[in-house]
Design a protein around this nucleic acid. Structure first.
Length: 242
DNA sequence: ATGGCTACGGAGCGTAGA
């Protein structure tokens, strides 16, 4: 099974890039974040015509998550967060989840503390999957290690010690960050940051040991970030022997 | 130089992203 996770920064603007992703990599499951569209306006037909079933949880203008799968989607649930930031389902024999962690805006502001709280609550929520084959993908908006952010000694938003501590606690519950050391996943649209590789590694896959034993490959799809009218995030991909 | 770019809503430019 091939799984992609991708912050698309508007699904409606990214349809051609989505099609190219499917043409090049033929993923079985695509976990989307920042679809930025209410459910009634989601381009369902376009995605379904590419061969995917859909589970969506969106809202107007901001946030929005979705799961696209070539397999039947069962036990779809998006109760974790009030904003459209989380969705899970059982598909093709495993549980998958797509999460869009709040950005936090600026260290110390109210949204920043909401981000820390989100991560803390989320860690507790995920205990329900302790005994399942489970792949969690998403935009965590944190670069867990110093080399995940191109700026030396950076400790601003996405790189502050409390944010990194929340992710460390997630790892301490047994989750393995399978894209550690695989490079950046986000580059600002500004300053030609992508060309200069001024990036952050914000998009992660987490699996526990039982699932990790089945992972055969993981990578960042930087070629999709190079397309015309790209998202500011590259998709991330992993292959699981299932 | 505290901007730079992109998407959204909604018809100006403010807000958010990270």
């Amino acid at each position: 099974m091939r799984i992609v996770s991708w912050n698309v920064n508007s699904i409606r603007v990214r349809l051609e890039n989505f099609s190219e992703l499917v043409r090049k990599y033929a993923p079985d499951v695509v976990l989307l974040q920042e679809t930025r569209v209410e459910d009634e306006k989601f381009p369902r037909e376009y995605i379904e015509d590419l061969g995917y079933n859909l589970a969506i949880f969106g809202q107007k203008a901001r946030n929005g998550v979705a799961i696209c799968s070539k397999f039947l989607l069962e036990e779809v649930n998006f109760d974790f967060a009030e904003e459209a930031r989380y969705i899970e389902a059982f598909t093709g024999g495993i549980f998958v989840a797509s999460v869009y962690v709040p950005n936090g805006q600026e260290v110390g502001c109210p949204n920043y503390f909401q981000k820390l709280e989100f991560l803390s609550n989320f860690r507790e929520y995920l205990k329900k999957f302790d005994n399942d084959l489970f792949v969690l993908g998403g935009d965590f908006n944190v670069g867990p290690y110093p080399y995940d952010i191109y700026i030396p000694n950076y400790d601003g938003i996405a790189g502050s010690a409390p944010e990194r501590a929340e992710i460390e606690k997630l790892r301490e519950t047994g989750f393995i960050d399978i894209l550690k050391d695989k490079g950046f996943t986000w580059w600002s649209y500004r300053q030609r940051d992508f060309k200069r590789n001024n990036g952050f590694r914000l998009d992660h896959f987490y699996v526990k040991q039982k699932t990790h034993e089945l992972v055969t490959n993981s990578q960042v799809l930087t070629d999709i970030r190079e397309l015309e009218r790209p998202s500011d995030h590259a998709p991330i991909m992993c292959d699981i022997k299932i």
